[in-house]
Amino acid sequence: MSTAPSAGPITATGTPSERNIDGQAIAITVFSTVKWWGRAFLPVLFNVTKRTPKLTTTIVQLSFIHFARWSLVTKIPYNGAPQPKQRLRYPHMYFESNFNGGWEEYIDAFSHILTSGMAAFWGSSYGFPKALPVGPFKAYIKENEIANSHYYSAYPEATITMVKAALDLDDKLAPLRRSAKGMQPDAFARAYEKMLTDAQRSL
């Protein structure tokens, strides 16, 4: 990867929590230090989760979550000077997710709905209190959350659910758009009503 010469550090604007929000989208980034056994356990867990789609269906059903990603960081990639070389004494869990709605509700969903999943993913991290009660879990996430320097959303007005609804509507509107030209008014009225009925979850 080639990078342009650095013009110095990019300074972030806004308060840390504001910098994690762009329009409807909120970003969450959490680093936690992993105990020695997590280094062996987590790759196995990730593998099993990946191969067993059933384990991730719940997260997919939580429609306000765009994605959630856990990964294990064992070393910090070196990009050459002036970056200092750094050794990680402990592996770290890197968690990133984007969602719509509120931070509190997001963590609530994790705690109450994905209780055992949270324990599996974060159980090997130092200081993890358990996913329930949610009070200490929120405090833990807050403590380890880092603020973005910059966060960008291409459609700040839209949520993921809205984008999906728009695509669905487009699919349902397209056939009518094609066939409408030659229709008589009453046939068009019927076709239009049918389209509205079919597409109402996206309207």
Partner: peptide, 23 residues
């Protein structure tokens, strides 16, 4: 107030996203 009243007012009454109703 924030978890109960404000969350209902902001996310459920003043917005429709969680119900699939856009804004």
């Amino acid at each position: 107030i924030s978890r109960q009243f404000e969350a209902v007012q902001m996310q459920w009454l003043n917005d429709g996203n969680i119900f699939g109703l856009g804004h």
